[in-house]
Design a protein around this nucleic acid. Structure first.
Lengths: 252, 252
DNA sequence: CCAAAAGTGTTGAGTCTACACCCATGC
DNA sequence: GCATGGGTGTAGACTCAACACTTTTGG
């Protein structure tokens, strides 16, 4: 992995900040975490508005798209090596760019120029990320006053076309859950089988049979049972497992 | 479908032509056709160079990414309603932009400016298209002197990262072949079961069992048997079929 | 001892694959 | 008739979902 450097808004003028990026292209990241029984989404709330968006960013001139996505993740979560997967590019008209100008305006001394590419149409490349929610330190940026987790099923409506992007990410995640090691990065290093099942149920949106699930996971490989059990809970102590393929599809 | 207008290079200067496009974003189309027993690829050969590339184009300022892809297809094939599917955005560094400047240079009176976005890094959105090869009129553009079909297994090496784009498209096509109506747009309106099987074998890269294939296709639905048979060939005349779902996933 | 959760096994339905047989057509 | 390709059926392997039983733990 090369060249991950978080880029903060360095102050006005806006033009100067924008100059370091490749114009008209952005990254949006649907960051999935897992806690309790629900999938969670990492969302940013903009200053001075009841507006939420996905964490996003732009491409440095000498930065690959994948690196830029990792940069966004590192800036908002502090994590460097996350499971990150590109799933679709969004380039429809009517992505409500004018709305964006209003959002930025509130946090600038002077009104930004109308003809900046930031306020014209931008093609956004969608990534989804799977992270261990306990390792994340949510960090807002210069434009937003909070970065926080929301239940994926009932998050506040998002600006632009970000609700559609979430839909696409979730669909891609559902399609990708069926490979060995899937979900590795959403869980802590050591986990129990019921926890893994709970994660799969959250992603798929339906209940699974406990016994068939366990069988399938073990036959498929990619996880190994440890000697220890999780003690302390009521009832029988479940075994702990860990993934032997650390991150499915994470190749660096 | 809105706003499909093929945009031709209107003559120099290059800057003027480029001004109508959203900078730094391009479309590349992997156009699959089917003839005989092989998948075919539509490729462009550049003027004054032994260089082949995929058909591509840029985004008009008021044009969605999908519309731009349809525009590319219409310009190179004459077809308006084709099965077209976005599969990945390519934005690595090292896409050999300098090479591109050399290609354009040969067909311009004056050397183009070095700082045009065309010669910097461009993020390319990859689409694959499935077309009926007999309906296509391959049409070169101002930069190329031929637009022609090549066997997908043994085409000339492509410039930039276009070989990788073809790989990705083929993989996405393999993954998508398993839905009812798949391949509808690669075949003529009426086709025989062996023809459909041949297509599937070409896409998957392996032989299939004749009997099981027929059974699966008919049980799955989406095609219907006609009264007619294909006469004229040696041996028993096969039935003709047609798709009842016209184009899988083509939604306008 | 009981309730609740966790581990393991079995059975039947449905699906996929390999293969055998018959039909049509040109030579 | 016979070689070749096309249409249909069947038996076995395999997969997957439904379900029963046992074990462990806290109260």
């Amino acid at each position: 992995m090369a060249n991950i450097r978080p880029i903060q808004f360095p102050g006005e003028p806006l033009e100067k900040w924008l100059a370091q990026f490749m114009p008209h292209v952005s990254i949006d990241c649907v960051v999935f975490g897992f806690h309790g029984a629900d999938l969670q989404l990492l969302l940013l709330k903009w200053k001075g508005a009841d507006t939420w968006t996905l964490p996003g960013g732009f491409l440095g001139h000498r930065q690959s798209v994948d690196d830029a996505a990792h940069g966004v993740l590192q800036a908002r979560t502090g994590l460097r090596r996350v499971h990150l997967r590109q799933f679709h590019a969004f380039g429809d008209l009517g992505r409500k760019e004018a709305n964006g100008r209003r959002l930025f305006r509130k946090n600038l001394r002077d009104a930004p120029r109308r003809d900046l590419w930031l306020f014209q149409r931008v093609v956004s490349i969608g990534y989804y990320a799977l992270v261990d929610i306990r390792k994340v330190r949510p960090t807002a940026d210069a434009w937003t006053d909070s970065c926080a987790w929301y239940p994926a099923g009932s998050h506040p409506p998002l600006a632009y076309d970000h609700d559609r992007i979430v839909e696409g990410a979730w669909e891609a995640l559902r399609a990708a859950i069926d490979v060995p090691g899937a979900g590795a990065s959403l869980l802590p290093e050591r986990f129990t089988m019921p926890e893994l099942q709970c994660l799969h149920e959250a992603i798929l949106g339906r209940r699974l049979d406990r016994r068939n699930f366990q069988k399938r996971m073990l036959e498929r490989g990619g996880i190994e049972r440890l000697q220890e059990r999780r003690t302390g809970g009521a009832h029988r102590a479940p075994y702990l497992y860990r993934f032997t393929v650390p991150h499915a599809g994470l190749d660096f």
